[in-house]
Nucleic acid binder design. Structure first.
Lengths: 336, 336
DNA sequence: ATGAAAGCGCTAACAC
DNA sequence: GTGTTAGCGCTTTCAT
């Protein structure tokens, strides 16, 4: 592997000059530049990023924390992040929240990353002291918790989104609506989840009783197809009466639909179901899932752009951008 | 951010000694070790990975090339990779094949990675000279092409898998089976795809005519829900007669089912459909998808383990492991 | 058992 | 315009 030294020797110039043409700063005469460029080509020289990082104290890499890519919701956000990262010469690593606390922190403190994007605020908050992390490394959060934070974040108005959805269900004549999704932790902390808040708000506004029989809570790290499936089976076993399910993500909704249809309950004829996220597959299943569309890629873009700004020295605080969502009326909801 | 120097000073020893306790080599007296450890704790010292990398010429990071995580098939393999990577102190970056040729190569040559895992052999092969890459960096491929290679790879017996699946369809009485999926490039190169080979083999073995009317080809980078959906719509528009569709991945199968049901064609009553990969959602849609199950996580594990071996100096060549698959009989196929 | 010193490949301040 | 030099934080001989 050729080094800058080798190039310098071959071109008959000093290493500094090579740097200059490489980084396009300082003055280099046409003639010399040409010779250097030729030498670079001949030796197939590629600058060593590790050495450069050590010198410049920035390594052109960011870390991104998710809780697994199996929910394509995250995969799509990550795609958005990747696009603007690469455009700006950054690479990124992905970590799943499943990794233990300490490993993370060290990985991050090791100086191998210039910035950090956290897609799973709640788990991350439980794991580490976010404020502390932020002091050592520029950080941007995708914030989906129910309270405000000073941490730089981009968010979606989830409360409003779920309120809309619930209202839609209500307008379709549903009164017994099951909520399937996130609490923060247990029933007490539950108020902190914006989606749940939206659900409760909508019900109350129409004078409908909010019954804990209709709460199907799932922890944040377990918002999967299987969880949706099993929660609804349990619900069915309990014999609770309901005519609709409002899920907190599409995967859980799809799991719910499966549980329903295995018991011979038809969607939407017998029970209506709504999802959340509008993952690509939502419109491809039959019946196509009525769900809430979020601008996933844009979220990724904004997350990365905000991080970039911070890495350039800007101080950012609190909500940087709040996106709106859109209810996609498809085939899993029916008027009764 | 504290450096090793600071620790040394605080502990009243030389920087070398600090290194020794950090890396657990050489002799350090109990007493000194304790002092150093205390200093480390007090200063919250974390060794700088960039500096270490520069010195040791290995950076504890690998790159992984996919064509996007939106197909959870790749996400699951990546999860497997992550598990053994982290276990062994490696971090990883993910790249989508959508990035242009040159950027890649440079990224990889920049010395920011100790190894490379390629999940999308075909695209990668088109993009770069795999053999050349391999000379500069240990590499391991997930190989799903129809010809053998000397490049270190882990594979699944895809030909056999698709042959099985086609036979299953045949045994169910289907004779007009549509193939939905990968050619290498155009019809001529088509023979190189193992799945296609398996499909043709099965048909021929039963003396059934192989008709190009039943080929629905999709390029490798376009094996999506939407592609499956649109290809099948086109097929329907052409008025070709068929009773089954064998798809090359679950996403395309799901897209196909959607196209079918939008036209009032029932699955499996009117047309049977099979998928490939057994992605988590396959069993959750209704009807549950009959598909081929591959050991995705294990593939990830083996990929990473093989890379580890190479990074430790071992020379690996050709097929390292070939996995078998399993047909999951569910609800999208019916006897006729 | 511990320390001194060289050097990984690069950049940037400073000289010429 | 171009070269010299110091140094980023660490590991690793080689002395002691």
């Amino acid at each position: 592997m050729a080094t800058r030294q080798d190039v310098a020797k071959l071109a008959g110039v000093s290493p500094t000059t090579v740097s200059r043409v490489l980084n396009n700063n300082g003055y280099v005469s046409q003639d010399v530049r040409k010779r250097v460029e030729e030498a670079i080509r001949e030796l197939q020289f590629v600058p060593n990023r590790v050495a450069r990082s050590l010198r410049t104290q920035k390594c052109g890499q960011i870390a991104c924390i998710t809780h697994g890519l199996k929910n394509t919701f995250y995969a799509e956000i990550v795609q958005g992040i990747e696009e603007v990262a690469l455009e700006n010469g950054y690479t990124y690593s992905i970590y799943s929240t499943s990794v233990e606390n300490e490993k993370y922190i060290n990985l991050i403190l090791e100086g191998f990353y210039d910035g950090l994007i956290v897609l799973t605020s709640s788990e991350f908050n439980n794991l580490v002291d976010s404020k502390k992390i932020r002091e050592v490394i520029p950080t941007c959060f995708y914030w989906d918790l129910g309270y405000e934070t000073k941490l730089p974040n981009v968010a979606v108005n989830l409360k409003k989104a779920m309120k809309n959805t619930t209202n839609y269900l209500l307008d379709c004549g549903h009164k017994e609506i099951v909520y399937l999704g996130y609490p923060k932790e247990g029933i007490e902390g539950v108020k902190e989840n914006p989606r749940f808040l939206g659900y409760v708000d909508a019900l109350k506004a129409k004078g409908i009783e909010v019954s804990s029989d209709h709460f199907l809570f799932v922890s944040n790290w377990n918002d999967t197809l299987t969880a949706g499936y099993e929660k609804v089976r349990e619900l069915l076993d309990r014999g609770v009466s309901f005519t609709a399910i409002a899920a907190c993500n599409d995967l859980m909704a799809i799991g719910a639909i499966r549980a329903l249809s295995e018991r011979g309950i038809r969607v939407p004829e017998d029970v209506s179901v709504t999802g959340f996220d509008d993952v690509e597959i939502a419109k491809m299943i039959t019946p196509a899932l009525t769900t809430v569309s979020l601008p996933k890629k844009e979220i990724g873009h904004t997350l990365m752009k905000s991080l970039l700004r911070q890495m350039n020295g800007e101080k950012l605080e609190g909500k940087i951008q709040e996106y709106e969502s859109e209810l996609m009326e498809r085939e899993t909801v029916q008027k009764i």
